[in-house]
Amino acid sequence: MTAAPADCAHARSEFLTIDTPRVEDGAAIWRIARDSEVLDLNSSYSYLLWCRDFAATSVVARDASGEPVAFVTGYLRPDRPGTLVVWQVAVDPSHRGSGLAGELLDALTSRVAEASGLSAVETTVTPDNTASDRLFTSYARRSAVPLEREVLFADDLFPEGKHLPEVLYRIGPFPS
């Protein structure tokens, strides 16, 4: 399902818009994730699938030429349909520090809440990722809802033996 342009695309400035990702954005999103140097990089194929199958629960920021410069990918948990899981957030280095990640997160959660209801947001953050910690902590504060943290996947669960634990951030519940 793709939201109507008026539902999800609005001008951030005269140069950036927030929009629903399209399959054609998959390669650019993969490059932004790769260049972040902090995200676990998935296969390029997975970003194409994400743009096809989870476009309604993801957003991109586009520059004046229409090219993606930032994204948030997410999905609704099958066992908790009111819970949006934020999978990845990345901003091109040339647009970092402007609050764009927070604006994308706000736009995505607003759209999901309107389309299907939203009771909570979940994501995982490694202990060394201070930017993501700040992003989700400030999001919970802006939304005036609780934020709980607990280890979801301990470091010894990862096969490569050098992955930090993934801490679950559960934000909500949101008012009905």
Rank of each mutant, 00 (worst) to 15 (best):
A3W: 09
I171Q: 03
T130R: 07
L168C: 11
V125M: 12
R96N: 06
R34N: 00
D92I: 10
E14D: 13
W87A: 10
S119R: 11
A115H: 05
T130W: 00
S44R: 15
G26C: 11
A101M: 08
V167D: 11
A140N: 01
V145G: 06
V89M: 13
M1I: 07
I32H: 04
E14Q: 10
R111P: 01
F153V: 13
V38I: 13
Y139M: 07
V60K: 03
A11H: 10
A144C: 08
R96G: 04
A131R: 09
T20F: 02
E14P: 12
T2H: 09
T124S: 06
D19H: 14
R62Y: 09
R80V: 07
I171W: 01
E24C: 09
D53N: 06
A6H: 14
D63E: 15
F158S: 05
Q88K: 13
S176P: 04
L100Q: 11
I171E: 02
S132H: 03
G82A: 10
R77C: 06
P159C: 02
Y47C: 08
Y75P: 00
P5H: 05
E160S: 14
A3E: 02
T73K: 01
L157A: 04
C8I: 14
D53L: 13
T124M: 11
D79H: 13
T137M: 00
P127R: 04
L152N: 07
W50H: 11
G26F: 13
A56M: 04
R96L: 09
N42T: 11
S94E: 15
A56K: 03
A11P: 07
I171C: 03
H95T: 10
D128A: 12
W50T: 12
V72R: 01
T17E: 07
L135Y: 03
P146I: 08
R134G: 11
E148N: 05
L100K: 12
A6S: 12
F136I: 07
P68D: 11
I171F: 03
V91D: 05
A90K: 05
L41V: 15
G102E: 06
I171K: 03
A70M: 07
A27E: 15
M1C: 06
A107L: 02
E150T: 07
S110N: 14
S138P: 01
G26S: 04
D25G: 02
R34L: 12
V60G: 07
V85H: 12
T2C: 04
D25E: 00
L49A: 02
C8Y: 09
A64I: 00
Y139L: 03
A154R: 14
L152T: 01
E166S: 04
L39N: 15
L41Q: 08
D128W: 02
L164V: 03
H95F: 15
G161D: 04
P93M: 02
R141D: 09
C51G: 05
G172I: 00
D92V: 01
A64Y: 02
T17L: 13
D128S: 12
R52M: 08
S44W: 01
S43L: 14
A28R: 14
F158Q: 01
